[in-house]
Simulated assay, not measured.
Amino acid sequence: MAPARRLLMLVISAVVCAAVASAPVVATAETAGEDCGKAAWPLASARTRLASPLRTVEAGGRLSLPLEGAVTLALSDRASAALPFQPTRRGRESRAGFVRIAVPPPGGDYQITVSDGAWLDVFADGKPLAPLAFTGVHACPGVRKSLRFRLTAGEVVLVVTDASGAGLAMVIDPVGP
């Protein structure tokens, strides 16, 4: 390679390196080690509400849809949780609880998004409902997973097992068109 051409290549390389080094660093979910954007549907609104639950609901308590914001379900050790239904997964001994939820007519598709890892079962008429869809994110601060269920008008029971903390923050939203 000719000396002039080699010098030109070095100058161009130096300019490119200087430009990259002086460019502002923009933190994104990817660069921050978060995988929030990898969920199957947007969770930003739920994540914001999960950061500030409005109230705590005692295990065995009642909620009515629609909820105005996030709530925290109080949990106890699984042995004393007095769950009304057996969870669909055997799981390990852990924190557990349940809440009865009044679903307004005509019912519909609802999304339950939770702050931390836990097993969620929804029961209607004593039978577990299969989720319509599921998405989970392991490295998204403040949100762990979201499940969608088709709920009929009336009462359903949400059973939480395999949780690690004394409470689980959650939001329950209708799934929009």
Rank of each mutant, 00 (worst) to 15 (best):
L10Y: 14
L10F: 14
L10S: 12
L10D: 13
S13F: 06
V15M: 05
V15R: 05
A18R: 09
S22D: 09
A23V: 08
V26N: 11
V26C: 11
T28H: 00
A32T: 10
G33R: 07
G33C: 07
C36H: 01
K38T: 14
P42T: 11
A44W: 00
A46M: 02
T48H: 12
T48Y: 08
L50D: 01
L50M: 04
A51L: 09
S52V: 13
P53H: 07
L54S: 15
L54G: 12
V57M: 04
V57E: 03
E58W: 14
A59S: 14
A59Y: 00
G61Y: 00
G61E: 00
R62P: 03
L63S: 03
S64Q: 15
P66A: 07
E68S: 15
V71N: 03
L73F: 02
S80L: 13
A82L: 06
A82W: 03
P84Q: 07
R90W: 14
R92Y: 15
E93W: 13
E93H: 13
R95F: 05
R95Q: 12
A96I: 00
F98E: 00
R100T: 11
A102M: 12
P105H: 14
G107V: 07
G108C: 04
G108N: 00
Y110L: 09
D116C: 09
D116T: 11
A118M: 07
F123Q: 04
A124D: 03
D125S: 15
P128M: 12
P128L: 12
P128V: 10
A130G: 12
A133Q: 12
F134A: 11
F134Y: 15
T135M: 03
G136V: 03
G136N: 06
V137I: 07
V137H: 01
V137K: 01
A139K: 11
A139M: 12
P141A: 10
